[in-house]
Design a protein around this nucleic acid. Structure first.
Length: 341
DNA sequence: TAGTGGCTTAGATGTCGATA
DNA sequence: TATCGACATCTAAGCCACTA
């Protein structure tokens, strides 16, 4: 359910809207994304005729606003028309045309089709390095569940979906099929059941910026997405909770030249001794630095919740959430004068 | 002015929360 | 538990701005 405008105003206050948008506008090099964004519009054309599309950087900034305030496409269109701060951020005047909600949807769809979200994330990684925010002091790996709308399927349909099959009712009716997410999966965490996807990410220990991410369906275990996340860092230390602890992962960390700071795991017949418990507590002080990253997404950006259907769209949407977190974090670090440290 | 392609409109279908 | 309204995603088709 979308938040009411009262909720929205509350979130604006939390983010200090005016300052947040001015900071994003002034401190981020939006033109740095243009080359990648132009690939959205690459297709075989018979001529240069036809209506011109909205500027790709403007559309991208609109998607950033959408994730910053967790707005639906319709609500984003309304807010761009309604709020001068949004218009100014997008470089529009009140007389200018504003992209329609469906145009916004279509642009996000084009990003998904071309699979550009990782490239955009990497574009910003270059900007971070230029600003002096090179990944330092080791990396911390973690994952968080991102809920998707719960599907109202029969038990038999859910069993078929779990087997990777498409239920006959969906096949028979294309309208039903396109509204059904057959790629989201159920999983259980802390005794609670969740349906959706998982955002696996790695942050650096110095700046708490997301350095890499992967999106999978929720049932994929954290430890299955580990090495592909590790990125360049000045230190070889890697922190992670006990879910990532396995003989294979430890061997691979060693082979890759990393120093494991992964929590030790206790077992029913083999509990952790005092020394191992102390070691875990010490590691926790560093590893816990990843929690505010998910906390920021949950509390300030409106929550880890998706309305899109399918893994490909979820990858784009979650990727955008991660990128928007980094944009926000970068502005905060610049303001504190921590760049070029 | 016809052809082209992005944008908008209308409609189908879904979930969620309130209510009886 | 069923029903209803509100609000969401997504597609198809037609509109409209632009080019040759």
């Amino acid at each position: 359910m979308q938040p009411s405008f009262f909720d929205l105003d509350d979130r604006y206050k939390k983010l200090n809207e005016r300052d947040a948008l001015i900071g994003l506008d002034k401190l981020i090099d939006w033109e740095g994304f243009r080359e990648t964004l132009q690939r959205c519009r690459e297709k075989a054309r018979k001529s240069a005729a036809g209506r011109k599309g909205f500027d790709v950087v403007l559309m991208f900034k609109a998607l950033v606003l959408q994730d910053l305030y967790n707005l639906s496409d319709e609500e984003l269109e309304f807010q761009i028309r309604d709020r001068y701060s949004f218009c100014r951020f997008l470089g529009l005047t009140p007389e200018d045309r504003v992209p329609d909600a469906k145009t916004i949807w279509l642009f996000r769809e084009q990003l998904t089709e071309k699979g550009l979200i990782k490239a955009l994330f990497e574009d910003f990684e270059w900007q971070l390095e230029e600003k002096g925010f090179k990944a330092k002091k080791g990396q911390i790996v973690d994952a968080s569940l991102v809920s998707a709308p719960i599907q109202r399927n029969s038990r038999e349909e859910n069993t078929q979906i779990k087997r990777g099959e498409i239920p006959q009712r969906f096949e028979a009716n294309p309208h039903v099929k396109r509204q059904k997410d057959v790629e989201a999966r159920w999983t259980e965490k802390n005794g609670q059941k969740h349906d959706g996807y998982k955002d696996h990410l790695v942050i650096d220990n110095e700046y708490k910026l997301i350095r890499n991410f992967e999106v999978t369906s929720a049932e994929v275990h954290d430890s299955q997405v580990f090495f592909e996340l590790l990125s360049e860092n000045t230190s070889k230390e890697v922190w992670a909770d006990s879910a990532y602890r396995s003989e294979e992962n430890e061997w691979m960390l060693k082979a890759g030249g990393y120093r494991s700071q992964v929590h030790r795991k206790g077992y029913r017949n083999r509990p952790l001794n005092k020394r191992a418990q102390q070691s875990n507590r010490r590691k926790s002080r560093i590893r816990a630095r990843v929690e505010p990253v998910f906390g920021s997404m949950e509390n300030e950006m409106g929550g880890l919740f998706l309305r899109v259907i399918g893994l490909a769209r979820a990858k784009t949407k979650i990727g955008l959430m991660n990128l928007v977190y980094n944009l926000k974090r970068c502005v905060s670090l610049c303001r504190r004068g921590l760049s070029a440290a």
